[in-house]
Computed example of a mutant assay.
Amino acid sequence: MLPEPPLLEIAGKPLLSWHLEKLANAGVRRVMTSLPDPTGEISRLLGDGRRFGLRIEPLDAAGEPVTGPQAIVAALAQRRGEPVAAISADLWTHYDFARLPRRPRASAHLVLVDNTALHPHGDLALLADGQVREGHGMKLTFSGIGVYAPHLLEAHARPADSPSARHRTALTDVLALLGWAMARGEVHGEHYTGPWTHLTSPDRLWELDGVVEL
């Protein structure tokens, strides 16, 4: 049985290690993780982060671990007024994390990539002025890399007639908040055309291993 995607080895190194080293090289010093770790292997790999030149902390909400889109909302709440850069742990890319804005122009900055055969219709449209929108037109795929501004959480406190109110729960999922922000033109992005793959199957790993640029 293959290990979880963050522990899959590419060119002899776990995928998670590649991400953390790139983040440290980009000047990041604090990382919050929200990865399921039933065997404890991820915790053993990470330690306290010093081997990567980082301070690594588990992300939790009310004492409970959180994963997926909800983790971004929890991280924004925990950061108390600071933006959060979020990177999915199951992707491989040459994207330079140092390119990410320290603060988004508005509510969020999303990195979009070309559509794949497994996801031919994409997710979101990137307009000429850099806005990212839902709806019709040529769409690209969300890469799993983004930066989120603290005021994105303001949608959680809007009056009951706001679009976000239909989705509101305790620490609602960031997808609902992004939908609200996109409708107001508050999400921007970029089109990255370099190497990127989502490790959805063993075949994707075998294709990468041995051809990674070291």
Rank of each mutant, 00 (worst) to 15 (best):
M1A: 14
M1N: 11
P5R: 05
P5S: 05
E9A: 12
A11T: 04
G12I: 10
G12P: 08
K13I: 10
L15N: 00
L15I: 05
S17I: 03
H19W: 04
V28K: 07
R30S: 15
R30P: 03
V31E: 05
M32I: 12
L35G: 02
P36M: 08
T39K: 12
S43C: 09
L46H: 03
R50Q: 13
R51I: 09
L54S: 00
L54F: 02
R55T: 14
I56K: 03
E57T: 13
E57M: 10
E57V: 12
P58K: 08
P58V: 05
A62N: 13
E64K: 14
V66N: 03
G68P: 05
G68I: 08
A71M: 05
A71C: 08
A77Q: 14
Q78T: 15
R80G: 03
E82G: 10
A85D: 01
S88Y: 10
H94I: 06
Y95Q: 01
Y95H: 03
F97Y: 15
R99H: 09
R103Y: 10
P104L: 04
S107R: 12
A108Q: 01
A108S: 11
L110Y: 02
V111H: 02
L112P: 01
N115Y: 07
H119Y: 13
P120F: 07
L126R: 04
K139S: 06
L140C: 04
T141P: 02
S143M: 06
S143H: 02
G144K: 04
Y148T: 06
A149C: 03
H151V: 10
H151D: 15
L152A: 04
H156E: 15
A157T: 12
A160I: 13
D161T: 13
P163F: 13
H167S: 14
R168V: 08
T169R: 15
L171N: 10
T172I: 12
A176Y: 09
L178G: 00
G179Q: 07
A183T: 06
E186D: 11
V187Y: 00
G189K: 00
E190A: 02
G194A: 08
T197A: 11
H198A: 08
S201L: 10
S201K: 13
L205H: 02
W206E: 15
W206A: 14
W206L: 15
E207M: 11
L208Q: 01
D209G: 06
G210R: 01
V211T: 14
V212W: 11
V212I: 13
L214K: 12
L214E: 12
